[in-house]
Amino acid sequence: MKRYLKLVNFEIGRFMKIYLVLIGITILSQLIGVIVMAKNYVANANEVIFVDSLPLEQFIEQYGEMGMMDVVGSIWFIGPIALCAAAFIFYIFFIWYRDWVGKNTFIYRLLMLPTSRLNILLSKATAIFIMVFGLVSVQLILLPIESMLLKWNVPFDFRIDMTVSEIINNNSYLFILIPDSFIQFIINYGIGFMVVFILFTAILFERSFRWKGALLGIIYCAIASIIFLAPLIYEIGFEASFFYTEEIFVIEIILGILVTAMSIWLSKLLLNKKVTV
């Protein structure tokens, strides 16, 4: 346990620089985005109202009010989120392959640690989870700050004020990242982590058997997906609705846990018996 925690900390430390850069980009881009968009809006309003002398009400009718929903939909806001998402998808692979590449193959050290090799897998996964949650938290903290910034830059008559929940509920990707129900949150990230473990298993297949392993890894991903989606494939494929929704829900939870457990078990087997440096 102690070594596992140390490894988690170690993995986080190794990614820290890139992680901080990602957070920095997110903060800067989103804050700048709020200011730029607010200033543009206000400038446009001034132009239209004072130069073209359009009444305020008519301006609002034509151009709409400014609110966080405009900011949240802009590239300033989505861009860094997409960047972070891409970075972490890349990181799922990078977290393993960087230990193999180059002359200083750190994987020797990791595999020779006097601790269960499963700990290496779990610590890498945990590091990813913690950092993903960290990014989500940064977003949660940024939203009220951005709302404030918007308030300072856009006069009351021109803006719609929204609470953090309202902002999130109005935006489909934010809603996936931070759903309003905690159970949904657990389900969303549970599925995410299941996928991480499936990919880890595929990576370890590749690391164990190289070219053949890459193929096995892809096959494993397919099998895992089919198992997890089996009830849905059945329902859609046969246009049947044999299961009641609540049954599907329970079955999916069980299958999700099963697939995750299977992935971890297989990874452990590969790490202990098959992995090659």
């Binding site: 913690i130 949650f133 960290g134 989500v136 938290s137 940064v138 949660l140 903290i141």
Partner: peptide, 8 residues
Amino acid sequence: ILVVILAI
């Protein structure tokens, strides 16, 4: 971890 627990 603290930030995560506090924010979420």
